[in-house]
Amino acid sequence: MLTVKLFAKARDLVGSPIIQIPWSDGDTVGRLKLALSERHPSLLPLVPRLLVAVNNDYAPDSLKVRTSDEVACFPPVSGG
């Protein structure tokens, strides 16, 4: 399983700050976005703009992810 942290509206829509996604090492960030849409349809409005961070850096859809990575999903940022 891949542990995924959620923040801000993503967390509110899912109702939990951490979720588990069935995972095979080598699956990509793009695959994660698909899995999130399927398992958590409440996230669908956000998915087109959802950002994924792997090990504290923004990750492209092509990046391969391992279950040992730190992964987070969140909407565009709005600090300042």
């Binding site: 923040f7 801000a8 509206k9 961070a53 923004y58 987070a72 969140f74 909407p75 940022v77 709005s78 600090g79 300042g80």
Partner: peptide
């Protein structure tokens, strides 16, 4: 750049 890339959100 902080407003574009640093993961902080306001409600």
């Amino acid at each position: 750049e902080l407003k574009v890339s640093v993961p902080i959100w306001k409600k």
